[in-house]
Structures are given as C-alpha cells and as structure tokens.
Design a protein around this nucleic acid. Structure first.
Lengths: 124, 124
DNA sequence: TTCAAAAGTTAGGTTAACCTAATAAATAGG
DNA sequence: CCTATTTATTAGGTTAACCTAACTTTTGAA
C-alpha cells in the first residue's frame, strides 16, 4: 500500500502548487514533475484510483486528506534535507535542492525528526 | 550512460562478495540483491554488455576496473551514510543500514566527501 | 461569436526490472 | 562412475512509468 516514489513526486508537486495557486492544472503538474502531459494524466488517474486526489476531465486537481498528508510529508522531508545539505554541509543551493528531491523518498519519519533536531542544535 | 540504481546495486553486491569469497557465484549475488536467479542472470548480462563485469555461463562473476570502481564507490557512500545515521543521529543498526542502502544511490561525490569530514569533526 | 491556440485525454508503443516454469549444466555422495 | 541435487540459463509474461501522435475540449482575442 506504500505509494511509489513516482506517486510521491506527483503528490508533492500538487501540494506545492496548491499552496500558491487557486487552481492546480495538469499542465503545471506535468511541468513541475518534468513529464509530458499524457504521463501526468495517467499518473493522476492512478492517484484518483488510490484515493489520493480528485479530478474531473479538463478541470483542476485537488488532493484528498490522505493525498495531502503524503504530499506535505514529502515536502517537509525535502525541506529538512535541503537545509542540512545547504547549511550544515555547505552544498550549493541548486545541488542541495536536486539531491533533496532524490533522497526525500527514502528517509523514515524517525530519521527526519532526528535530522531536524540535529540541524537545530548544530546551527545554534 | 550513468548506471541505474539497479545496476549499482548489483555492482555493489559483487564488490562486497569479492572482498570475502574467492569465487562470486550467481546464487550469492541473487541472494544479496534479494532477487531470483533469473533476474540476476539478466542483470549480469547487462553488466557485461556495458563493460562492468565478466562472466561465462555456469562460472563465476568478476568485475572489470570500471565495474569495480562503481561498486566500491557505492559501498563507500553506503558506509558513510550508515555511520552518519547510526552514530550521529542515533538510528538503530538495522534501520540505518536499510536507509543507507536506499540513499547511497543519490548522493553526489561532493556530498559524500563533505559528509565524511563532518562526521569526523562531529565525533571527535 | 467564432475559431485558432492552449490544455487535456486516449491510443498505442517502449523500456527496465522483476517474476515463474521449464530446461540444461555442474557437482558431490553413495 | 552415475544419478540426485544444486546452480544457472532460457523462454515467456507482468507491471510501472514514461513517450509520441492523434484527437477532443476549453478558452480567449479579434
């Protein structure tokens, strides 16, 4: 039942877009995930089938509670990893961002929490 | 031309096995990578096609220079991540190992080096 | 208000990585 | 030295995630 890395990427993208824009469109999701539109359509249909999102054809996409929870979690892990890579290790913004995007799918909640506390302690 | 995560897993496995055993056998590779034998056969053929390994049917597997370099690199990244997770963050042995196995494919050489130096500094 | 451009979907195809079942080769114990 | 077991390969199939090309719906500018 655990969502795939790809599904997590879509949920994160939709979550981020929904923070900034009134309507989240297919086009924007595809762009943010770096895929073509048909791939986004297919992926969103999978999200819907699994109860992560709602969407009717040619309309905007919204997350369910369940979908939002995961999207938010991944984005949160991303931000913590980004901060660690950039501020603790001194990796450049761009590279830190890109690596955080890859690693975010693989750290446990425990690691996220411990890393968060560790960063706070280290940077104070 | 960058090897896939899966290819890296096989190269790492063969590298580790070659440190301990005279002959590296398909059976052992499959077991360490957690796949069935036919999957290992298929994967090793891909390694050969890409110049990472040598192998004749029903015989042992050896890495080329190129293959060994990558296997060793991944194992090195793994060990550094493992140490960070376990000794700096305080994650349990098992969990630290499992997470290191996932993350090892995604950190750059720069991050590996900076993380290594950071661990040394922190644990001293 | 219409119609061209933009956005979205559908159809059909590719690739990587895995699997099971069947087969072949190698090896080891009686 | 032969045959049962173990090891390895081949054949054929599945799934997830992507793609292009073709089609449909929506939108916005003249």
């Amino acid at each position: 039942m655990k969502p795939t890395k790809s599904i997590e990427d879509y949920l994160k993208a939709i979550y981020i877009l929904s923070l900034k824009e009134k309507d989240v469109r297919m086009k924007d999701i595809a762009q943010l995930v770096s895929v073509k539109l048909p791939s986004a359509t297919e992926a969103i249909n999978k999200l819907i089938k699994n109860g992560y999102a709602k969407h009717s054809p040619y309309s905007d996409v919204t997350l369910t509670k369940k979908g939002e929870k995961i999207g938010k979690e991944i984005w949160n892990k991303h931000q913590i990893l980004y901060k660690f890579l950039k501020e603790v290790l001194g990796i450049s913004q761009d590279k830190a961002f890109r690596e955080a995007c890859l690693i975010e799918h693989f750290i446990s909640d425990e690691t996220r929490e411990k890393l968060k506390k560790f960063i706070e302690k280290t940077l104070s």
